[in-house]
Design a protein around this nucleic acid. Structure first.
Lengths: 235, 235, 235, 235
DNA sequence: TATGAATGAGGGTTCATTCAT
DNA sequence: CATGAATGAACCCTCATTCAT
């Protein structure tokens, strides 16, 4: 909006965040943001942990918020890449769904409550300016599941009367809420059993409407077949 | 842990903030928080809308964050009371679930994206100090649904192999995500059709394991088994 | 332009800068700005001299630049008021011009090179935002001389073929340059003789074009008259 | 006073900056300073326009301020050279004055408000350190006019009772003020008519005291006196 | 000569919060 | 109760400038 385009950011380009320095900063920033949360984190502390000056941080990242967004982006990127790679190799919607759910929960649980809280919380605290960016990041992140949904809908594995988007929101929303409860409730948490239960429930929720009907039809055919046999044997 | 004497200073009780002034402040605060979000809202603006001084605000509320929490509490309180009253009168789990879902979506949609974003976002931005409070508020808010879950589990309307808490997280998590998508995507949004779709899907997800499809499957297995035996014996 | 209107400045109103505090701040600010110049002056120092915090300064003035503008405004205001009062009472354009010149030089010399440099320099360093304000201030300041010009042009005391604005620029521009030379050259400087010389030169520069012609005409009339008398007496 | 070894580091001499690189930098710097003003211009932008690094700029110029001074110096240098060359060839003070005025106005108007504002504004924003330098530059720049004044005073073309310096300040000060008004007022501006009016007025202001009008006045006084005597004796 | 990278050194500004009246 | 006034405390960010290569 009213942003000065600035001379052109001092840093190379927003694309290739590969330099060693950049990675170091990202890493330190992730730690601090995870520990303190965005608002309470200070650029001073991030710089301090790196043993550099704040100015160096700002050489590579335009603002504290941008830095935080990049931390999130990097986090999502990793899993996104994995999902993009693995999910298409999996056979069947049910297994795909299960895989996606397990990955999401596993990563967020394993990396500690800090980063988990950051991902859950800052995904919602977006300064307008980065609103579009976070939407993109999440779109990419959820694209594997969306593709799986699409394929499943086509093959008749899941119902076709509900927007994919709604199902996606159910899956991710549920997990977020579960993780949030976990973080704040401190209850013991079994990833595996949660994965199983969620998969099962969503499998049923998303099942084609005519599944029972189809099953019934097949059953009838089988029974009819059997009856014919009985008839034959009993005659 | 050396916690501050905390949240009650000179206020009557944690529950019912009554005075006219208190209500005015809450109202102004809600407007401002809804418009700007917590961080960008200022106590100065809240006071200014009331035509009083910031000091007055602090006479009634200990801190900006506390004020915000009270705004949220008030918001939840209203619906909580309604749910507590209405839900028990409804017959059947399915209808109860539907009612809860509709109320949640309806309120958040109708009151505008501002308060909606506030509820969704600030519910996650908790300063440790208020962490417990928000958990309480939400517990109270979700208690109607939890009670319905419990009753349904007892009566066999829903499956008994999944923690209620997990189902609750699914329901509320899904709705939060859906609302968030709505707020940021700006897509047209039909409360009624969403309610129907969600109710239906959750109904299926939560259905007892021995419902038609499952029962049928098991029955079919039995029959098939019997047929095999007959086959063998009859040949 | 793109300024946040802000909730409404915390300070009473831009008009009545009368409060004691305001005057104190203005005074301290003038000292610091005069000593260091705008850029090198710091709000910290201004606050420190007052024995208050910087925040207090910002309670009354929106920004460092605004504070500086107000210092300038106050400076101009004082003399403007004096000129508005005195000039109209003076008879004749020449005396008025002389008065205006003397006041300008006198004030700027007497108040020291600091404030003088500030007035001369910062009158030219305007952040767009205050561009209009400084123009207003200066318009007001020069209005006495402009009025005198207008009256003189009407009465035929000065030429009518030159825009008043041009003459005004000549008078003030000359003085600014003279003062600048004085400040940087450090040459001894006699206000009185400079006033006399300037007045005299401008008087001639601005004199009606037909002054010589008129004088000549009158002189011819007088001589002719004398000649007639001589004729009469010598006959 | 412990002055820094100052302005010449590794540069050939204070006078002639020759290298191609130097010229490129000066050119880019002039553009940026003209567009943004000194304070808002950044060395980063200057370097960026050149396609080099900031460090390169600092290889050739000791500081941002020095660079700016060199830009100004170069600007003045060009016209100074022209004036030095042309003015002595012109016959008569009036024509010389007119020439000088026209050149000054013409250059500043033609090169755009950016460089004009820079010259007018930064000529006044001197960091002590460069105070002497700018004085030198301006002395050189005004030397043609000063020489013309001196010659004119010698030949009796202009009055001898006023310091040349004062007259110089009047001429340049007037023009600066006029240009400033033009830049900020945005009024249409005719160089030629302004040149004519200024020349005419200054011509009159600087005219010898015994020029026609004065001489006439004195002569008239004498004649009148004589006439009175005649009157008395002839009655 | 050229420069990529790093940074020292503030600087202005913001607000929630306090307290005497 | 209400509040005007004051401020502590930080924070993000900028940029000219340096220096090893």
């Amino acid at each position: 909006m009213g942003k000065k385009p600035a001379i052109q950011d001092r840093r190379s380009s927003l694309g290739a965040r590969s330099g060693r320095r950049v990675q170091e900063i990202l890493s330190a920033a992730r730690d601090v943001f995870a520990e303190k949360g965005f608002e309470k984190a200070t650029t001073a502390e991030i710089a301090q942990r790196l043993g550099t000056s704040e100015a160096t941080v700002f050489t590579y990242f335009g603002s504290k918020r941008e830095l935080c967004m990049e931390v999130l982006r990097a986090w999502y990127y990793e899993i996104s890449a994995e999902l993009d790679r693995e999910v298409p190799l999996i056979e069947g919607f049910r297994a795909r769904l299960r895989f996606v759910i397990r990955e999401h929960l596993k990563h967020l649980i394993e990396e500690g409550t800090g980063i988990c809280a950051l991902v859950l919380s800052e995904g919602r605290n977006v300064d307008e300016e980065f609103s579009e960016l976070i939407v993109d990041i999440k779109r990419r992140y959820t694209s594997s599941l969306m593709a799986a949904f699409a394929a499943a809908q086509k093959s008749g594995e899941i119902r076709g009367d509900v927007p994919l988007r709604l199902m996606r929101d159910m899956v991710y929303g549920s997990m977020e809420h579960i993780l949030w409860s976990y973080i704040h409730g401190g209850r013991p948490f079994s990833v595996e059993s949660t994965v199983s239960q969620l998969s099962d429930m969503f499998w049923k929720a998303f099942a084609p409407l005519d599944q029972p009907a189809e099953a019934l039809a097949q059953f009838r055919a089988e029974v009819a077949d059997a009856l014919r046999k009985l008839d034959r044997s009993g005659s």
